[in-house]
């Protein structure tokens, strides 16, 4: 679905965050992440202090990719929902709009898997709509030059100064 890179715009970003905040409140979860299938964190909401969010995003995508391959081995396209149960915290992973991974972390004593599943289902539809719009806009804008020359030059200088022995 997405091959040319994703561009996140401010208005879409706000809409997405609103949907995720609502999901978090209604499902009584601790935090929600959106991650693309290549492992890049798109956004996160909630109390994330105890996590390394970048590593979390990368591992979630790896986890999802690995289970999708397992699904294919038994003739499924992918498993659309994954659930990891912990003693204190659990993780619910689902796919939105075919290309974005949504991870919900929740406290076992505060809420239930059933409620999280129900609220995730409701949010997925809204999210899919916003993401679809964003992907289409990304594709249109992907045709034009994304970064200007002075920016590229500044980044190259930064690369030279940081990546050295």
């Amino acid at each position: 679905m997405l091959q040319d890179g994703l561009i996140m715009y401010e208005d879409s970003f706000e809409k997405i965050n609103l949907i995720l905040d609502e999901l978090m409140k209604n499902s009584k979860s601790e935090c929600v992440f959106l991650v693309d299938k290549s492992g890049q964190l798109i956004t996160m909401r909630g109390n994330m202090e105890q996590f390394d969010s970048t590593a979390f995003a990368s591992l979630s995508a790896g986890n999802f990719a690995a289970t999708s391959e397992l699904a294919k081995l038994i003739g499924e396209t992918e498993f659309s929902v994954l659930f990891h149960e912990g003693v204190k915290d659990s993780i619910h992973i689902s796919i939105v709009a075919g290309s974005i991974i949504m991870v919900v972390v929740f406290r076992v004593v505060k809420t239930s898997l059933g409620l999280v599943r129900l609220e995730v289902k409701k949010s997925v539809e809204h999210l899919a709509h916003v993401l679809k719009e964003m992907v289409e806009r990304s594709k249109r804008d992907g045709q034009i030059k994304k970064l200007d020359e002075s920016f590229t030059q500044a980044i190259e200088n930064e690369i030279d100064s940081l990546f050295k022995d």
Binding site: D4, G5, M8, Y9, E10, T43
Partner: peptide
Amino acid sequence: MSLINYASREINCKI
């Protein structure tokens, strides 16, 4: 797939 986020002003690339 690069991700350019104008809202959080981030560019992410995968190597």
